[in-house]
Amino acid sequence: MSTSRVNIVAIDTESALRPLITEVIRDRPLLYLHIVGPELGDRHLISIMTLYIPSKNVVYLLDIEEMRHVAFTTTNADGKSLKYILELPSLRKVIFDIRHGSDSLFYLYQIRVKGIRDVQLMETVLRWGRQDTLGILSVAMQRNSTFPEALVKKWCDLNSKSSYVFNPLSGGRRGTFGERPIRQDIMRYVVAQVAVLPDLYNVYCSKLQQSDEADVRARVAEATRWRLIISQRPRAQSALILGWRGPWDDAYDHAVENGYKTPIQIAAPEDGVNYGVSYDHDEPEDDEYGLECFEKVWDVIGHCNSPGPIDESI
């Protein structure tokens, strides 16, 4: 297992962003994505977009609070931008629940994200039992992660403690995401969110690629496309998918059994757009890949012990 450490790079200027754009366009890596902000999904400001590229051992913290539109309109020498990357169907972006991020990206910056692999939907469609409610990342970790139990507990503890920083129900403030310099406790939280995605994506890809799972892959692709379409519609319509009900309820099953159009097909009919959401050829990495990625990132997170700006020495 490689011992090279992950670098955390904060980007808040055009000059710092251009090399990232060029690198992603050139290498077409698998991107692990997290988007956060005050009241995200209610078309409020995006504060931080986190991009994890395991193949490069780098986590990028894009300061959208500081850059705003410039973050998405800045172009490299070839005229390509972050908007171009997010809208590129052939470039896979893995995220846990795209709904709120897609909602804000479209209505604030007119970005129609494509190429999404939604880990929340993958977990739901592969779950044994009811599929009409959506899960949360910590539960997916506890049920499906291949990590040792001690590591899972550490991650869940950090995730729980973070809620005291930004969750008003726990005494925190949503505006904490917008404080500058970026607080180290916020940095730990957003980096931890992407750190676990390679493992879970690997687990779910392996299950989806089983020979008898073609229908399941089609279901999760259809639901991903549905999320993207509806989240980019007027508020009254997009609000329909921002709750905790899953797409595969009794009405869906009844429609499939009787040959009717499903609620998903009715709400988001085929529009001829390539959203790049097919899961048919998503091959899992080797078994050690997810744990290796997580351990590298966790080693860096452990060096951030107090609120305040990111420690440039880590």
Rank of each mutant, 00 (worst) to 15 (best):
S4Y: 01
S4R: 09
N7A: 14
A10L: 08
S15P: 11
S15Y: 12
L17T: 01
R18W: 05
L20C: 08
I35K: 13
E39P: 08
L40D: 06
D42Y: 15
R43I: 15
Y52L: 07
Y60E: 08
D63C: 04
T74W: 02
Y84W: 06
I85A: 04
I85T: 09
E87A: 05
L88E: 04
P89M: 07
V94N: 00
D97G: 03
G101Y: 11
G101L: 10
Y109F: 13
G115Q: 07
R117N: 08
Q120I: 03
L158C: 05
N159T: 01
S163R: 04
Y164G: 02
P168A: 04
G171N: 05
G175A: 05
F177R: 14
I182D: 13
R183Q: 14
I186G: 12
V191D: 08
L197V: 01
P198R: 06
P198V: 04
D199E: 03
L200S: 02
S206V: 00
D212M: 13
R219Q: 15
R227P: 11
L228Y: 15
I241Q: 07
L242A: 09
W248L: 13
A251K: 14
Y260L: 13
T262M: 05
I264N: 06
Q265E: 03
Q265F: 00
E270M: 09
E270G: 00
V273T: 07
N274D: 12
Y275K: 07
C293V: 02
F294L: 03
P307L: 11
P309Y: 05
P309S: 12
E312Q: 15
E312L: 15
